[in-house]
Computed example of a mutant assay.
Amino acid sequence: MFPKNAWYVACTPDEIDAKPLGRTICNEKIVFYRGQEGGVAALEDFCPHRGAPLSLGRVCEGQLVCGYHGLVMGCDGKTVAMPGQRVQGFPKIRAFPVVERYGFVWVWPGDPAQADPARIHHLDWAENPDWAYGGGLYHIRCDYRLMVDNLMDLTHETYVHASSIGQKEIDESPVTTRTVGDRVVTSRFMHNVMPPPFWRANLRGNHLADDVPVDRWQVCHFIPPSHVMIEVGVAHAGKGGYEADPKDKVSSVVVDFLTPETDSTMWYFWGMARNFNPRDTNLTAQIKEGQGKVFSEDTAVLEEQQRNLDRFPDRKLLMLNIDAGGVQARRIIERLVAQEQPQKLAA
């Protein structure tokens, strides 16, 4: 279950710099490539001649050439040429709205008439030289909504990530949840705690003491259709916590773009944007490596969770107070999906 009239992160620019990329987004098989003048194009991954995936072909002078019989496609889905054939009567294949922005390639798998680029989620940090970003991509065999649940309730960190970002105080600190329009925010603040290993390393990365108590925060923002941005950080205790002066803290935004592939698989574009020592490339690489290990732990749990849910599809799951963020996010998703369904005619 996923809205189709929405912008999803499809890939990163480097994935299509050398050759076409075939990727399934919201059950739509799409080929991405760079057309003439370097712009990104997205077409149905289906050659109108014999149905071969166009992603198995190549790009020649900004045109997509099928790797089976040499049919040449234009960025609008019309066949341009084919060796020894007239192509005027060839059927047009589907072209998807696509935009390259903020260091990502975004695709709209739904009604192209509604694809307004202004609706792409704005990323302040991506346009600010005082911020640095490092991230990666995982393919995960689970319903993307399980990852929404996971990110909107960070209680699991105590158990799944005990060696990196977890600590018992996460369990002991209350969580607040609020919904504002189509967005959900969950917040947790921990005071006068010792920083776990991941945050000790980040304190050192900002030339701060890592062996003193800190105030820690986690503020998770769900933004439709399936993006979760998490404000995280620690400040030396008593310096103002979340509102502390930058010289007394390390703070970041955990970036999570959850792109459904199918009903039970997803693409997970993860990363961290930070506003301390942004030009330290070694620090960026260090944080990326540490974060990648954390998210691989999530992946292992979520894939097993999906397998268990598939085995017992009729089992009713418990809903606890800590699940409020995920529950509210799912309600928004359900409403958006329902709005896309054809209205039943009155009897």
Results as ranks from 00 to 15, higher is better:
Leu43Ile: 07
Leu43Gly: 02
Leu43Asp: 00
Leu43Gln: 03
Leu43Val: 00
Leu43Tyr: 08
Leu43Phe: 02
Glu44Ile: 00
Glu44Trp: 01
Asp45Gln: 00
Asp45Phe: 02
Asp45Pro: 00
Asp45Trp: 00
Phe46Leu: 12
Phe46Met: 11
Phe46Arg: 10
Phe46Thr: 00
Cys47Ile: 06
Cys47Tyr: 03
Cys47Gln: 02
Cys47Ala: 03
Cys47His: 02
Pro48Lys: 03
Pro48Tyr: 01
Pro48Asn: 10
His49Phe: 00
His49Val: 00
Arg50Asp: 02
Arg50Leu: 07
Gly51Thr: 05
Gly51Gln: 10
Gly51Glu: 09
Ala52Met: 08
Ala52Gln: 02
Ala52His: 00
Ala52Lys: 06
Pro53Gly: 02
Pro53Asp: 05
Leu54Cys: 03
Leu54Tyr: 05
Ser55Lys: 02
Ser55Met: 03
Leu56Met: 14
Leu56Gln: 13
Gly57Asn: 07
Gly57Ala: 12
Gly57Arg: 01
Gly57Cys: 04
Arg58Gly: 01
Arg58Asn: 08
Val59Trp: 11
Val59His: 07
Cys60Asn: 12
Cys60Tyr: 07
Glu61Arg: 15
Glu61Ala: 12
Gly62Arg: 10
Gly62Cys: 05
Gln63Lys: 15
Gln63Cys: 09
Gln63Ile: 04
Leu64Asn: 03
Leu64Met: 10
Leu64Gln: 04
Val65Ser: 04
Val65Asp: 02
Cys66Lys: 06
Gly67Met: 04
Gly67His: 03
Tyr68Ser: 05
Tyr68Lys: 07
Gly70Asn: 05
Gly70Gln: 11
Gly70Tyr: 01
Leu71Ala: 11
Leu71Phe: 09
Leu71Thr: 14
Val72Asn: 11
Val72Ser: 04
Met73Pro: 08
Met73Cys: 09
Met73Gly: 04
Gly74Gln: 14
Gly74Trp: 06
Gly74Cys: 14
Gly74Asn: 13
Gly74Glu: 15
Cys75Asn: 12
Cys75Arg: 15
Cys75Ala: 15
Cys75Lys: 15
Cys75His: 14
Asp76Ile: 01
Asp76Ala: 10
Asp76Lys: 11
Asp76Met: 05
Gly77Asn: 05
Gly77Trp: 10
Gly77His: 09
Lys78Cys: 13
Lys78Asn: 14
Lys78Arg: 15
Thr79Tyr: 04
Thr79Pro: 08
Val80Tyr: 08
Val80Asn: 06
Val80Ser: 13
Val80Pro: 07
Val80Phe: 08
Val80Cys: 10
Ala81Lys: 07
Ala81Tyr: 03
Met82His: 15
Pro83Arg: 02
Pro83Ala: 06
Gly84Asp: 03
Gln85Pro: 03
Arg86Cys: 11
Arg86Gln: 14
Arg86Asn: 13
Arg86Glu: 13
Val87Ser: 01
Val87Ile: 14
Val87Arg: 06
Val87Tyr: 08
Gln88Leu: 12
Gln88Pro: 01
Gln88Asn: 14
Gln88Ala: 15
Gln88Trp: 13
Gln88Tyr: 11
Gly89Pro: 03
Gly89Tyr: 09
Gly89Ile: 04
Phe90Ile: 10
Phe90Leu: 13
Phe90Gly: 11
Phe90Trp: 13
Pro91Arg: 14
Pro91Asp: 12
Pro91His: 13
Lys92Ser: 14
Ile93Thr: 15
Ile93Gln: 08
Ile93Cys: 01
Ile93Glu: 06
Ile93His: 08
